[in-house]
């Protein structure tokens, strides 16, 4: 509410857009080599005047919304060998400030749909087509796995063993026994060793830990290192 500290001119079209980029980068696990960026409704219509394009690219480069390099992110992207393409898309009945980012690199690719709902607050609503719902305000664990009895219980057990508390949990699958995606918001981060262990399970094919890109409570906690 008081914050983020940010580069102007718009908390939803600049800061929020940047954060959607930050989440996409983390889901890929590296700086993308290429990004296909689809802008929906108000993002498409007034994005240009709000630095939305530069902000999303800045987020993909790992810059926070208060990073002074944000206005020059296109130049920075060139030297980081990140290529990108913008288009206007219709994502249907979603918030008018929404974007679809397909980011790729090192043979991997992930597609994220996120909405910027005001004041720099975001909500990620789809990852690779699966329904999710996380704000980037907490540590968020995402895993893609084969739908089977007991997988979620095993993941929850691993978290409990690591003394990591679950704040919110959603899961979605394409069909019974098919590909599924689990999204868990956590009060603490899950250690790298536990992440590797998760990935070693035969039913798991993808694990990502998204660090917070957003404020918790009424101000950005210095605690989490998110100064923006």
């Amino acid at each position: 509410m008081i914050g983020p500290v940010m580069i102007g001119p718009s908390s939803s079209h600049t800061a929020g857009a940047c954060r959607i980029g930050q989440v996409a980068r983390q889901l890929l696990g590296q700086t993308p080599a290429h990004a296909e960026i689809g802008l929906h409704a108000s993002f498409a219509k007034t994005g240009k005047g709000h630095g939305t394009h530069q902000a999303i690219v800045a987020g993909l480069l790992g810059y926070a919304p208060d990073d002074a390099r944000l206005p020059q992110s296109f130049e920075q992207a060139a030297s980081a060998e990140l290529s990108f393409n913008f288009e206007t898309v219709d994502l249907g009945d979603v918030h008018p400030n929404s974007a679809r980012l397909t980011v790729s690199g090192s043979g991997q690719s992930v597609t994220v749909i996120g909405s910027s709902t005001g004041g720099g607050v975001i909500e990620i609503i789809r990852v690779d087509g699966f329904k999710v719902g996380f704000s980037g305000g907490a540590f968020t664990l995402l895993t893609r796995y084969s739908d089977a009895v007991g997988v979620i219980a095993k993941v929850a057990g691993l978290l409990a063993a690591d003394q990591v508390n679950i704040a919110a949990l959603t899961c979605d699958r394409d069909k019974r026994g098919g590909a599924a995606l689990l999204c868990i918001e956590l009060d603490q981060t899950l250690g790298e060793a536990a992440q590797h262990f998760l990935l070693s399970w035969p039913e798991m094919d993808w694990v990502r830990m998204v660090q917070p890109v957003m404020d918790a409570g009424i101000v950005a906690p210095v605690l989490l290192g998110t100064t923006a």
Binding site: I2, M6, G8, S10, G119, G120
Partner: peptide, 21 residues
């Protein structure tokens, strides 16, 4: 005006309304 120059400001609650508080 700082905001409109892509300068550094505090959104409160948004950037467009950052000058009021």
């Amino acid at each position: 005006e700082e905001n409109a120059r892509m300068g550094r400001i505090v959104a409160a609650p948004t950037a467009g309304s950052a000058g009021t508080i």
